[in-house]
Design a protein around this nucleic acid. Structure first.
Length: 771
DNA sequence: TCCGAGCCACTTTTT
DNA sequence: GTGGCTCGGA
């Protein structure tokens, strides 16, 4: 074991005869595994950190420790994260430990921001100028579209979006056009995929631009072509730290491996059970094969959980154990009590939203803060039911996600002006704002400019300069184009003397862009103007236009209003890394979660990823975790009957409490003339409720004492209303699925209707409208 | 240039 | 059910 002691471990041991006594204060309060993760500074380390096990603490302490021990200076540490938020938090927490030296951590950031930093220094190696523009997803799609157009392909059949995503996929896997296999080239446009990819890359070079994928891919190319450059970084980075390693894609993996090859002081932190980004290129494989990639790697498991109750942990652990491809670890806690995971079956999506709303109000009544509660959904379309319900209740809520500030039309327009002023070759920016506001540069004129630029192989601005001196354009268009180009030139000149803020104000004013929205009478105009002011505000925080534009492209965080007192509503993906005392997990139905589409497209591995998503969901909860599923759900305007999610069956019985309502099934059903409402649904599909989860739900609800309704009052309402028929025999009705018909038999809620097109069917009254 | 009709698709989404 | 996009006409 001694041989495996790291420099820092030996250093610490050598500090004093009693190492314990000499241990620095920052090691106090760490458990054994965390401490091991902090001290094992030398050689490859894989830190498998389960949910809620104090990962962030361990890794920030580790970095601080390296600095305290003077094993490296701040600028010799490479620490990569996926999100800006994670990078920021890490920096703050290290700062709290080491003080102002934290400012020297210039290589702490996201993969993309660090990739961009390196690329700016060696841009010429891959044919770019150091001032290259970073394109966002939207620009990428536009560019891809142009490439498809230029190749004369049917744009309906082959969308820009499609090409962009195929190219993205290749870039995520570290493939430059020459490395894409012939077989894969068929993934797009019948074999033209690769030539389109090459054309796309050529266009990027002409535009002096890089997309997100390029930021890393170009790095790899540079490292491979110039071993001397690689060696320089290998020497520089004495210690490397990678957060969320399970989310790395192949390109990121290759990048890391190149950099770590020499010193091998790489510490990857992650949790294979929380890998939920496979669909955008993440390879769980990376974390699974770490020990193979780095022989002699030390694997440290953080399994002691400080977040959740035993029942929540047991539910999560049992569920995730059904996955085959995992390294395996078991969370444990010293906590002993706490409530079990509640599983509730409801009639439909609306009722689910209503009951969760009631639960939230009940918790609030008990003194729980609203921001202590979160509703986590699989897909954003599920949010609507909750928003509607919360609005009705007047319950403050906050949606995390959605369109981000820098993705909004007006913000992108304003930024496009700035981009064009900074880099005249930025054709995408030119295209975007040349005629916004309208300045007589309509589609006709723009097409002529494009055609000329393409023929001469020039950027649009350069082409425009020539065109305004020629007679190729009509007098009106020529004048309009001249005024536009002169405006750009004037701003570019002004940029020398003005602060970014003043320049931005000047541009927004002189271009007429602000007036464009002032004159717009739509309801959106006000908020658009506000957002423009926000842009000016944001710009004024930067010393140079270039710095601002990089910020926009790379650090464009969603602006999350930090207002307390609101229930959280977000997707499971967005919830990763967060925790809440009370978590609601609605929509656990086959088809919704696991998502049918995911299963169709990804098969067994995709199912495992869905299961990991369920695991992430459950482990967000500290005290209370409430899963629910609906028997019926309206999707895309159609009613669908659904099966409880297989994940519900995978939860351990003893950690779960099934909470159901009378009137749905169980006791109250017995009081109905012949069938429960659920029996009525069985008429349509007999096997739906013949599965273990459902049988268990029924059995549990029949057991007295276990199935106490969560909200008694409401539940009783449901059961009381269960007997009242809504339509009389002979009534004309409308059904979403079957159309018009006439009621021929009524038994409580269960009606037999003779439909005009599909004949007699047994249906439930709630699916019917009067007609 | 702008607006409405028709058509389509529709998980997750950082950088 | 809904929103986004395209196309054609005013």
């Amino acid at each position: 074991m001694n041989a495996r002691l790291s420099i820092s471990e030996r250093a610490l041991a050598g500090l004093a005869p009693a190492a314990e006594a000499a241990a620095p204060a920052y090691l106090e309060g760490l458990n054994d595994e965390q401490r091991e993760a902090v001290l094992a500074t030398e050689g490859p380390v894989l830190m498998l950190a389960g949910a809620g096990t104090g990962k962030t603490r361990a890794l920030t302490t580790r970095l601080a420790h390296i600095l305290f021990m003077r094993l490296a200076e701040p600028w010799q540490l490479l620490a990569v994260t996926f999100t800006n938020k994670a990078a920021r938090e890490m920096k703050e927490r290290i700062g709290a430990l080491i003080g102002e030296r934290v400012e020297g951590l210039q290589w702490l950031g996201t993969f993309h921001s660090i990739g961009a930093q390196i690329l700016r220094r060696h841009a010429e190696v891959v044919g770019l100028k150091p001032s290259f523009t970073i394109l966002d997803a939207d620009d990428q799609v536009r560019l891809a579209k142009q490439v498809i157009e230029a190749a004369g392909l049917d744009e309906k059949r082959w969308s820009g979006r499609g090409l962009a995503s195929v190219i993205d996929g290749w870039k995520n896997r570290g493939l430059t056009p020459d490395k894409v296999s012939a077989n894969e080239a068929w993934h797009f446009a019948e074999g033209k995929g690769v030539s389109l990819y090459s054309a796309y890359q050529e266009r990027l070079k002409t535009l002096n631009a890089a997309d997100f994928g390029d930021l890393l891919l170009h790095n790899i190319t540079i490292f491979q072509r110039h071993p001397d450059i690689l060696a320089q970084y290998q020497d520089k980075f004495r210690y490397m730290l990678v957060d969320e390693y399970q989310d790395t894609n192949v390109a990121q993996y290759l990048w890391l491996r190149l950099l770590a090859q020499k010193r091998r002081n790489i510490c990857c932190v992650g949790d294979d059970d929380q890998s939920i980004y496979g669909w955008r290129g993440a390879e769980v494989e990376n974390i699974l094969k770490f020990e193979k990639d780095f022989p002699g790697a030390r694997v440290i498991r953080l399994e002691r959980n400080y977040r959740s109750t035993p029942a929540i942990l047991s539910a999560a652990s049992t569920l995730i154990a059904a996955n085959k491809t995992r390294l395996g670890k078991t969370l444990w806690t010293e906590a002993t009590d706490g409530e079990r995971v509640k599983v509730r079956g409801v009639w439909d999506g609306e009722e689910e939203a209503r009951l969760i709303g009631d639960d939230i109000e009940a918790e609030q009544g008990k003194g729980r803060g609203l921001s202590d509660m979160a509703v986590l959904v699989r897909a954003s379309f599920q949010m609507r039911a909750f928003e509607e319900r919360f609005l009705t209740l007047g319950l403050p809520y906050r949606v995390v996600g959605g369109p981000r500030f820098y993705e909004r039309e007006e913000v992108r327009d304003a930024v496009a002006y700035l981009r064009l002023v900074r880099s005249a070759d930025d054709d995408l920016a030119f295209d975007r704002i040349a005629n916004k506001p309208a300045r007589k540069l309509g589609g006709q004129t723009m097409q002529q400019i494009h055609a000329f630029a393409r023929a001469q192989n020039l950027p649009l601005t350069a082409a425009s300069r020539i065109l305004i001196e020629s007679d190729d354009l009509g007098a009106a268009s020529r004048g309009a184009l001249r005024r536009f180009i002169e405006m750009i030139d004037r701003w570019a000149g002004a940029a020398e003397n003005l602060s970014p803020r003043d320049l931005t104000e000047l541009i927004l004013d002189e271009s007429g862009y602000t007036d464009y929205w002032k004159n717009n009478k739509s309801a959106k105009a006000d908020s658009k103007l506000d957002n423009l002011k926000e842009v000016v505000q944001a710009v004024s925080e930067f010393d140079t236009l270039a710095a601002y534009l990089d910020h926009v492209a790379l650090v464009a965080d969603r602006s999350e209003a930090e207002a307390g007192g609101a229930v959280w509503l977000m997707t499971l993906h967005a919830a990763k890394g967060l925790e809440f005392p009370v978590v609601f997990l609605p929509g656990w139905e086959e088809g919704v979660f696991p998502s049918q589409r995911s299963l169709d497209e990804g098969g067994a591995p995709a199912l495992e990823e869905e299961r990991r998503l369920a695991y992430v969901g459950i482990t967000r909860a500290r005290e209370s975790c409430r899963v629910s599923f609906a028997a019926n759900r309206q999707m895309y305007g159609r009613w669908q009957t659904s099966l409880p999610s297989r994940f519900i069956d995978e939860l351990p019985e003893d950690a779960v409490e099934v909470v159901s309502q009378p009137g749905l099934y169980g006791n109250a059903a017995a009081s109905l003339p012949s069938h429960s409402r659920f029996d009525a649904t069985r008429l349509e599909e007999d096997s739906y409720y013949d599965n273990p989860g459902w049988r268990r739900a029924r059995a549990a609800s029949a057991r007295p004492g276990v199935a106490a309704p969560m909200i008694e009052g409401r539940a009783r309402e449901v059961s009381v209303s269960a007997g009242a028929p809504k339509f009389a025999v002979g009534a004309r009705v409308f059904h979403d699925k079957f159309g018009y018909g006439r009621v021929i038999l009524a038994e409580g809620q269960k009606l037999t209707v003779d439909f005009e097109h599909s004949g007699a069917k047994k249906v439930v009254d709630s699916f019917l409208k009067g007609a």
